[in-house]
Design a protein around this nucleic acid. Structure first.
Lengths: 180, 180
DNA sequence: TCTGAACCGGAACGCGCGTCCCGATTCTAC
DNA sequence: GTAGAATCGGGACGCGCGTTCCGGTTCAGA
């Protein structure tokens, strides 16, 4: 790979991460190309599709999330590990419109993007949920899709603007509801 | 208004209600015209804009919701009235994609549509929430936007397909969380 | 330095959307 | 029955999107 190509690849990715986080998935490929100071063809060559561009971003992000999940599982009691992960996801989503939209299935889906990269968001969540249920700290009838939807609800609250106080209220209500 | 115009108006509205409920707000105006057996011009004349068409639908629906809210406020204790309304909204939204999307702000917003028609969804929710809080049956720190977001969370669970059992779980978690 | 392969930029394309326009049609009042 | 106004149908338009293409440019190895 030529040096200029590698530079452009990195720059496009960098700009796209920022743009998707700030404005959501609806930012156009043209706009990303413009901000990166390259032509649209250059974007298309490195990422044949808008979805491919987004997948490249999601992949890196999911690895971070998975690592966070592992840390929590190792360092906290099962219930608290799940609750803390929920808090983490909501905080991330509140400041990252692209992530929030992907969780909500608007545009591309996290799970689809994850599946293509070998990671599995659902399994990750289940890995925290099941131990918490076994420990009796979370209702036994719930599945990981329920938890994901509850996270989406928390994110919905801040769609009109960041509001940490509201976020805390939503998290309190949600975590309270998760308990048996 | 000519008789045929009135007929077309009604038919378009009828088809649009069904289409938006079944497929969401992304159904095209062309498609609605096709299904109604009229030209696209006829739709545009009666409803100058796609948003205007959706507003006409929302208006009627909001009046139903408002009536339901009044009934509940009159016939049930404050806490139960709010909980039952939440259940009602979630059940409605689960079988009506257009309503769910409008609540989620994808496409047009219920509140915007409501504001233009003199109805106010937020105020409606507040009218049930505040008495429930006064009665000590719901956390005092929540506002109506919180409740709306929690409803959205419940709806998110069924985005991939109707699942009444999951709906009951989500409602149980949510209502549990609302309590002080 | 020179050459050719890799890479670039952005105009061009196809698509589907919402909206507008106008000749043809249909209803209604007389 | 007839005139004329109201209404209709659907082709045409403009827009923005994601994607493709290709003539020009830049890099890197000999």
């Amino acid at each position: 790979m030529r040096a200029d190509a590698r530079r452009n690849y990195a720059r496009i990715l960098e700009v796209a991460i920022e743009a998707f986080a700030a404005e959501g998935l609806s930012v156009s490929v043209h706009e990303i190309a413009r901000r990166a100071g390259v032509g649209t063809g250059t974007v298309s060559r490195h990422f044949p599709t808008k979805e491919a561009l987004y997948q490249a971003i999601v992949q890196a992000r999911l690895e971070q999330l998975a690592q966070r999940a592992r840390e929590l599982a190792a360092s906290a009691p099962p219930g608290e590990a799940l609750f803390e992960f929920v808090r983490f996801m909501v905080t991330e989503g509140a400041t990252n419109r692209g992530l929030a939209e992907a969780l909500g299935g608007a545009g591309f889906d996290v799970e689809t993007a994850a599946a293509d990269t070998g990671l599995d968001f659902g399994a990750m969540l289940r890995g925290l949920l099941v131990p918490a249920q076994r420990a009796g700290e979370v209702r036994a009838d719930l599945d990981q899709a329920d938890v994901k939807a509850l996270i989406e609800g928390c994110l919905a609250r801040e769609r009109g603007g960041i509001d940490p106080a509201a976020r805390d209220r939503m998290l309190a209500v949600t975590i309270r509801g998760l308990r048996p």
